[in-house]
Simulated assay, not measured.
Amino acid sequence: MDGLTNLAATFGNRVSTNLRGSFTDLSWEKVIRIVIVAGAYMLLRPYLIKLGGRVQMQSHEEEAARAEAEAEFKAKAKISPNELRGQVEVPDDTDEEDEATGEASGPDWGKTARRRQRRMIKKLLDAEEQRLQESLEEEEDKDIEEFLVKE
């Protein structure tokens, strides 16, 4: 308990000594410097707050736009196969297409890589068409089963 009162007395003495020393060593130059700094702070503070608010609002808008674009992308990713029909373009089997123009339209692939790519795209399209055809046949079979009489 005695240590606590000593600590409080020492703290009080140091605060009063430092505060008194700060004001006794205060010259006119230091007073003017303090007034200028405090005045500039009071004049510029509202503008700085507005600027900070504007920057924060822009960052919030960018974040909201990014979230909205991501949500649109997720919603757009769920499309039906019928919507894809006719949108995929299969390149022709001619290898002269790049040589005729003299410029490559895409990566600089060799003949076998282009052929392999065309075959893969055709296989994917054929598989999709087959799947759609099977689903249509299943739906037709279900419609016909309704009218069949079971005895």
Rank of each mutant, 00 (worst) to 15 (best):
K78P: 00
Q87L: 14
D98H: 04
R114C: 04
A8V: 01
A77Y: 04
V88I: 13
N82F: 14
D141F: 06
S27A: 05
N82R: 13
A38S: 12
E140D: 09
D108L: 09
R131H: 09
E138G: 08
G3P: 03
Q117I: 07
K50A: 15
S59K: 13
R131E: 09
W28Y: 07
M120H: 08
D108V: 08
G102Y: 00
F23Y: 05
G3V: 02
E68Q: 13
L51S: 14
G102E: 03
T17L: 01
T101Y: 02
L43V: 14
E83M: 08
D108F: 08
I121E: 01
P91Y: 03
I34F: 13
G106P: 00
I144Q: 05
D92G: 07
D98N: 05
K30F: 05
V149C: 06
G21T: 10
S22I: 00
R66S: 13
E70F: 09
I49G: 13
I144Y: 02
E72M: 10
R114T: 03
E129V: 10
K76N: 11
V37D: 13
K78H: 06
K142C: 01
K111L: 12
T5E: 03
D143C: 04
S22A: 10
I34L: 13
R33M: 11
E63R: 09
K78Y: 07
I144G: 00
Q130I: 04
E129K: 14
G106V: 02
S22V: 02
M42I: 12
D141R: 12
D141N: 07
P46C: 14
T17K: 02
Y47R: 14
T112S: 09
Q130G: 05
I79T: 12
A67G: 05
L7C: 00
D2Q: 05
T17H: 01
Q130L: 12
L51F: 15
V35K: 09
A69F: 10
E62T: 10
T94W: 01
P46F: 13
N13V: 00
S16H: 00
G52E: 15
I34M: 13
A67R: 13
G86D: 04
K30C: 03
L48F: 15
E146L: 12
H60K: 14
D25I: 03
R114D: 02
E83V: 10
I49W: 15
E96L: 06
L136E: 15
E134Y: 03
